[in-house]
Nucleic acid binder design. Structure first.
Lengths: 124, 124
DNA sequence: ATTTCTTACGCTCAACGTAAGTATC
DNA sequence: GATACTTACGTTGAGCGTAAGAAAT
């Protein structure tokens, strides 16, 4: 018999061997949304320098620039625009789900103590 | 005038102030999918110890356990099952998008050099 | 001069491996 | 003894802040 105990999908599209850091994704998302590294830094309670660092990381990882650096502020490149929506939605999906399990008004936390941690009955 | 230059959505559901590390999410995803920290570690080219560390991080972050530790292997708790699909899909969304911009057969990279890095015409 | 992105540099701690521990079979 | 998760501990490098630089207005 093949295992039925754990999630299975058809061809789940294997993830890339390495994914960028969460901080890089968040910095990108905030910068793209706000159009400014400075505002992204404020929003994330970081310095400009940290945002620059993470964005550069992400651009190096991709081998493509994500923003045009303008005299005043920034602008998404085509590549940047191409990934912005997916990154944004991916982060939102993850963030909402985690929030529902942790931050929610007690609901999920309380419920989660009902029975799922009960050990398996002895297999014999 | 309000800025039209950057992405705008209605109420994009603000992300939580802090999100777990990418490594923690990946470790969770691999462990949940494989039903084993050991197999997750192999898949991610890490040690068991590193996987345990990241999973514990994630559980601490959430304040909830995500796996039952069984005699042999692990099992998702209700909370774990509740977040697995969203985390999995979120990571997949991000991974695919990034791959399409970086790893793709030259397409996006090549196209991306066409015109998007052209500077703005002087604003005067 | 002001604003905004970039770079240099140093510090801290998260992430990890190794190795020992625990528990079940 | 074998398998698998956990814990202790030391090392290393990513992530960050401070501060100085560059470029445009």
């Amino acid at each position: 018999m093949t295992s039925l105990a754990h999630p299975q999908q058809g061809q789940p599209t294997p993830l890339p061997a390495r994914l960028p850091n969460m901080q890089a994704l968040r910095a990108f998302e905030a910068a793209a949304r706000s159009g400014s590294f400075t505002r992204a830094a404020e929003e994330l309670y970081l310095t400009q320098s940290a945002v620059t660092y993470q964005i550069r990381n992400l651009e190096d990882y991709l081998g493509t620039s994500l923003f045009q650096r303008l005299h005043r502020g920034i602008r998404l490149t085509n590549a940047g625009r191409a990934v912005y929506n997916d990154i944004s939605r991916g982060l939102a999906l993850i963030g909402e789900s985690l929030t529902s399990v942790s931050g929610a008004p007690g609901a999920t936390r309380a419920i989660s103590r009902r029975m799922e941690d009960a050990p398996d009955p002895p297999s014999a």
